[in-house]
Each structure stands twice: as C-alpha cells, then as structure tokens.
Amino acid sequence: MTNIESPFKVLITGGAGYIGSRLAATLIERHPSWQISILDLVLPIGRTLHEKLHHIFQADVTSTESVSHVFVDYCPDLIIHSAGIVPSRKKRYSTDPKDWNLVKAVNYDGTRHIVDAALQAGCKKLVFTSSCTVTVDDLDHDYFFMNETVPLGYAHLHYGKSKTMAEEYVLSPEVAERGLIACALRPCTIIGEGDRAVISVFYDLIAKGETNFIVGDGNNLYDFMYIDNAVMAHVLAAENLLTTQTAAGQAFFISNEEPVYFWDFLAYVWAQFDHHPSFRVKIPTNLAWAAGWMLEWWTWWTRTAPTLDRGSVKDGIRTQYSDNQKARRILGYKPVIGTAEAVRRTCEDYKIYLASQAKGKP
C-alpha cells in the first residue's frame, strides 16, 4: 500500500478561495511532507500560507491555454478541483442566459479544462468539489434524506445544472477510460469564519425588517455544514485516492448530519446579533409566490439589494437534507464541529467583519 506520508504533490484549484485556502492550510499542517500548490485567477492569500506553498499558479480555468500553461513543467500526483463560481443573492435564481454562460464557463468548461490538461500532463487523480445542488436545484421537489441513488438531471438553476454537468464529466466512463481516478463531494450550504455569502443574506433581513415572515408551515428541514467539516471531507477523499482508491468513481453527499428547521435556523442566526422578532407571521404556501413578488417590488421601490424574492421564497418552503452514510463508510467522514457551534463561530467572525467595515478598514 502507498505510504500516505510520501512527498505527494497536490494542486488545489481555487486555492485562494473560501474552501481552497482553508484546505491548503489544513493539508500543510496534516501532511508536512506533501508539496501543496494552488491555482487561482486572483491570489489574495495571507503571507503565512504563501510562504508554505510549493507553487502558486495564476490561471483562468475558463481558458484552455491558461490552464495548459500550468502543466508544462508541473505534474501533481493529485488535484483537488475546488475552483468554481457560486451565484449569490438574486443571481442565485437567475434565468438570464448571460448569467448561465458565465456559470457554465467556470464550473463546467473550467472543470473540463483542468481534467484534460491534467491527463495530458500525466496526473490521473482528482477530487472534485461538486455540490448538493446537483439534486436540490430542482426547486419543485422536496429531498428527504437523499442519497447518491437519486438520479441527476433535474436541477434547473444555473449553479446546480453546471455542477451536474461537471460532475458527470469527471465521473464519466469515457474519462475513466482515459485513466482518470476521481471522486466527487457534494457539500450542502457551507458556513464558517470567512463566510460573506450565506450569513450576510440572513443578517441583511434584520435591517430590512423581513424577520417577521415564515413562508409555509415552517416545518421544512434544511442542511448546513461547517467549513472545517467540508475541508476534512476533501482531505479524506484525497488520502483515499492516494492510497486505497475505494472512493474512485463515486460521489458523496456531505453535511453536518444535523438537519434543522430552516426558519428556526434563521431565528438562531439572528439571536447571535441580539435580534429577536417580536412576532412571526406564517404565510401560507399558496401565497408564497405572491409574497416573493411583493418583496421583489419593495426592494425595487426602495432601491435596496434584494434578499427575499420568488426564487428564495420557493427555496425556503421545501425540505432538503442528505444521508452521509456512504461518505462515512468509504471515506471515514464524520463531522466534528456541530451546527450550533458553527453558527456561533460564523456570526462572531461576521461581527468582526461588520465592525471593520464600519471603520472603513478592509
């Protein structure tokens, strides 16, 4: 069996991003003998991490030429492909073809470019950061305790559709025949220190006076997970492909394994900022679309950034949570930080961020 402490060369795409930078730091600490390199379009990484990296490649995954140039004199033993674009706020539910072209170019075409260039260079192992949205971006259905047997192809939002296409390419028999040994991880919504996407939307509801609404009956369950749990799943997947390879060809849902009532979760987040709605009104499901339209109109009228709209309202009335047994069995995955602590850490970090913004500091 391959010695896990061999001086493996590992490349993390999106290595300056939210998951990628934390993953790089974790691998450096966990496996000091490994040579960790990152690839990203922009590289705003801290000096401490910068000094510990073996290579830092600046490249655009949407460009075949840019990606190919990275592998001219470099061939890692394994790639963790975490580079991607996650549409946020109103663009999360966009139907604009221009938005789709950008998301597809990064998430699908970018994945193809990385895989093709890697195989050409001789690198045959890859961990792909997919997403639970390959299933749950089908907003017309609930997904109770979903596992990897749920068929793909129903996601209609840009992000989930692009991740589905990319995952299917990475795990396709055709690419496997070319020698790629790969697996895909499907994390749910990630929170943690450094999160400026998820918590910011929830926090903005306070200022906009939108915390008194509960759309539907309020009994829908939702998955969230802590960033370090997501990072550890990637570490375990990398270790697996470099040794036993029992994860090869497989996709894995990962979460905190603590489904929460979505609207109670929001209340818990708001409580971290000492906000407690004095009352909460349940809006029947059959009025959800009307409520979403009203909120879209209000944000347009007040010229404020939209938080709730028809897409997010529809998203907020359904259930989505996953079964992680496959990841537990094959990868040895087990979440370490619970959801309550994850929320506390995320919100404390966001308070520091808000304070720095108020003082005009970066």
Score class of each variant (00 low, 15 high):
residue 132 C to P: 00
residue 276 H to S: 12
residue 80 I to W: 04
residue 41 L to D: 09
residue 296 E to K: 14
residue 247 A to H: 03
residue 301 W to P: 01
residue 58 Q to F: 03
residue 331 L to E: 01
residue 237 A to G: 10
residue 71 F to V: 12
residue 127 V to H: 11
residue 82 S to F: 06
residue 181 I to M: 04
residue 239 E to W: 04
residue 128 F to I: 10
residue 159 Y to V: 00
residue 232 M to P: 00
residue 213 F to C: 06
residue 291 A to F: 11
residue 86 V to F: 06
residue 21 S to P: 09
residue 84 G to T: 05
residue 349 D to I: 00
residue 281 V to E: 10
residue 281 V to S: 09
residue 211 T to Q: 13
residue 301 W to N: 05
residue 78 L to H: 11
residue 265 F to Y: 14
residue 31 H to S: 07
residue 5 E to T: 15
residue 202 F to Q: 08
residue 145 F to P: 00
residue 293 W to I: 14
residue 353 Y to N: 05
residue 316 G to Q: 03
residue 133 T to M: 03
residue 201 V to L: 14
residue 134 V to F: 05
residue 197 A to D: 04
residue 272 Q to W: 01
residue 354 L to S: 01
residue 221 L to G: 05
residue 113 H to D: 01
residue 38 I to S: 08
residue 296 E to V: 11
residue 3 N to R: 15
residue 79 I to R: 14
residue 315 D to K: 01
residue 156 H to W: 02
residue 247 A to F: 07
residue 246 T to S: 10
residue 73 D to W: 10
residue 347 C to S: 00
residue 256 N to S: 12
residue 349 D to G: 02
residue 305 A to D: 13
residue 175 V to Y: 00
residue 13 T to M: 11
residue 284 P to A: 15
residue 109 D to W: 04
residue 323 D to T: 06
residue 19 I to A: 07
residue 9 K to Y: 08
residue 139 L to K: 03
residue 232 M to E: 08
residue 273 F to K: 09
residue 315 D to P: 00
residue 41 L to K: 14
residue 342 A to N: 03
residue 266 L to N: 14
residue 78 L to N: 10
residue 273 F to L: 09
residue 9 K to R: 14
residue 36 I to S: 02
residue 59 A to E: 04
residue 254 I to D: 05
residue 148 E to M: 10
residue 268 Y to T: 14
residue 75 C to D: 10
residue 61 V to N: 02
residue 53 L to I: 05
residue 318 R to F: 06
residue 44 P to N: 12
residue 222 Y to N: 05
residue 224 F to D: 00
residue 114 I to Q: 07
residue 191 I to V: 03
residue 131 S to C: 02
residue 245 Q to E: 13
residue 145 F to Q: 10
residue 39 L to E: 12
residue 263 W to F: 13
residue 106 V to I: 15
residue 340 A to R: 11
residue 166 A to H: 07
residue 227 I to S: 01
residue 88 S to K: 09
